[in-house]
Design a protein around this nucleic acid. Structure first.
Lengths: 105, 105
DNA sequence: CGATGATATGTCCGATACGACATATGCGTC
DNA sequence: GACGCATATGTCGTATCGGACATATCATCG
């Protein structure tokens, strides 16, 4: 299993088993987490591409800098709802959102 | 505005203005609701295609019949998280989920 | 018309998500 | 090193979500 991805998952609040890696996550859970990571990464891409700070994005979204940081980290406390709503608010189309999700794992 | 769609939105717990239709929903809100409706419809399609009852699906998901009904109705009390998790659990791939979302409104 | 099975609607309450704030870490620049 | 700015992490109170249950609506069949 990829080291950095593992770290991200653990950091995001998921317990990953020692040796058997993903064996503690069901296939659906794993797919769900990866889907979330994809959205989170995309959110950061959008922000960085525009040269925006997390604080600025937070203001646009009516949220806080810490929440934006957690979104980009795909923290366990952020929902897909929040990620999708945020992307839409930042001008990403529904179609683009779908493409990000559909992109092969 | 389409009559049945309007009814679905209202039923789903959204307040839609009288004459100006969508004017009370921002563009992002509208896109978000439609995205949710797409997932909800797809969930129903999957279920019906397999000849499953809501009760059966509820058991598979570890939920209740009423929740499944609300999911398919895109009720305001169901999140995109729940819809996505449910679809994945029912065997739909992440890619398929993305395609459903990306499908042009 | 019952009666049965499927779906829809309404409410409750325990669980979780979210915004907020404080604080920590990092990283240039002086 | 110290300052300023961006990002990360931890926690709290409240709002929303979700499973459960009750009940309602609606077919279909006898």
């Amino acid at each position: 299993m990829d080291k950095t991805k593992r770290t991200r998952l653990e950091t995001a609040g998921w317990r990953v088993g020692d040796a058997p890696d993903f064996l503690e996550l069901t296939a659906e859970e794993a797919a769900f987490v990866e889907l979330k990571l994809a959205l989170a990464d995309y959110l950061r891409d959008i922000r960085v591409q525009h040269g925006w700070t997390q604080t600025y994005v937070a203001r646009v979204l009516g949220s806080s800098q810490s929440r934006v940081a957690k979104m980009e980290a795909a923290d366990a406390s952020v929902s897909v709802d929040l990620l999708v709503k945020s992307l839409l608010t930042l001008g990403v189309s529904r179609k683009q959102v779908g493409q990000v999700i559909a992109r092969a794992a």
